[in-house]
Amino acid sequence: MKLKKSAKGNSEISTASLPDIIFMLLFFFMVTTTMRDTKLLVKVIPPDATEVQRLEKKSLVEYIYIGPPVNKKYGDETRIQINDQFISGLHEISEWATTIIINRPEDERKFLTTSLKVHKDTKMGIVTDIKQELRKANALKINYSTRKNLANK
């Protein structure tokens, strides 16, 4: 008698809604996923900083990668990568930046940000050169990409 009663109370949890729950999660991740579209040709370990700001609008951010090539056949010297390839001369930066600015509608232009992803052992010389090139193209808003480190020192 006692055994029968406990067997009756032991009802199973319905799993009928499980697919729906999973689908919901699936859609969430499908929507939030951004596939990495550029393949990094240079090694970039950004320096640490505490005073970081988030880059809000990703569509308004353009990236420049600066660091030693990943592939050793390109040597050890610091190279600059824009989109999917190395650039051969510094003048390409201002040309590239100008093209980007022209192709944007007028009201978006002043919010355009160039994110500099620079390897931390890079010398400032090349970074200064890039900044000068960006100034020439009037791409004035820049962001030094850093990792957030709260326990600084």
């Binding site: 596939m35 900083a49 005073e51 004035l140 030094y144 990409s145």
Partner: peptide, 17 residues
């Protein structure tokens, strides 16, 4: 495959040429 990395860094404004 999701990368939820939000880019962050120090934002500065360069002076005009």
């Amino acid at each position: 495959t999701t990368t939820m990395d939000t880019d962050s860094g120090i934002t500065r404004k360069l002076p005009p040429p």
